[in-house]
């Protein structure tokens, strides 16, 4: 009897240890520096999408959300990154399961100039299914600071023009609405992001 108990205890311990090990190894080596050590809950928010509808945390839940922050008056880095995101989604066509549960979201940090119709033209140009969202400065700031996204407007020039410095990462929000991974500019290659994302989906639990 004692032997049985100790054997069981050993088996249980061993299994527990194995689970512990698995947890420690949860982040595959190639995902280190991409996936956050602990997913971070995103506080609820109410933005407005390119159809003029409210866009809240609920709209992200149940999906993998690729977020990029920028503004349509940004002619260089923003379209490059949006084009890259469109390319990632094209590559995901070979993985319909992953594609079906993914959405691409452009968050404009320039609500003043990026009205719904401008956003609509902009996002759908890159991918018909992409979503454009924005909100007034205070709301956007609350939303972006929760993710560690920064942006800063320059002084307005005589002709009314201004520039905005902004984070260039692609932020991944998981189906539970948590900030899960970040693709930094050095990972900005469609093939690489698609591969990393598929790896994330595979190891997600």
């Amino acid at each position: 009897m004692a032997l049985l108990v100790s054997t069981l205890a050993f088996v249980a311990l061993h299994a527990g240890y194995r689970v512990l090990l698995m947890n420690q190894n949860e982040i595959a080596p190639e995902l280190l520096g991409v996936v956050l050590p602990t997913p971070r809950a995103v506080n609820d928010f109410t933005l407005k999408d390119h159809r003029g509808e409210p866009f809240t945390l609920k709209n992200m839940q149940g999906r993998w959300n690729f977020l990029f922050f920028g503004y349509t008056h940004c002619p260089d880095v923003c379209p490059v990154t949006m084009g890259l995101l469109a390319d990632v989604f094209k590559r995901l066509k070979e993985h319909p399961m992953a594609l079906q549960q993914s959405q691409g979201i452009f968050v404009s940090v320039d609500a003043k100039r990026d009205q719904a119709n401008v956003l609509k033209d902009y996002v759908t140009y890159f991918n018909e299914a992409f979503i454009g969202v924005t909100a007034d400065d205070d709301t956007i700031k609350k939303f972006t600071s929760g993710l560690g996204v920064a942006f800063k407007s320059s002084a307005v020039e005589a002709d009314g023009n201004y520039l905005i410095a902004h984070s260039t990462g692609i932020y991944l929000i998981d189906p539970q609405g948590r900030f899960y991974a970040l693709f930094q500019p050095q990972h900005h290659n469609a093939e690489k992001i698609a591969a990393l994302f598929l790896e994330i989906v595979k190891s997600y639990r």
């Binding site: 349509t72 401008v118 033209d121």
Partner: peptide, 12 residues
């Protein structure tokens, strides 16, 4: 020049 949707006001 990078093509952009018609509403875009700045191109590169």
């Amino acid at each position: 020049v990078r093509a952009a949707p018609p509403t875009v006001q700045t191109l590169a």
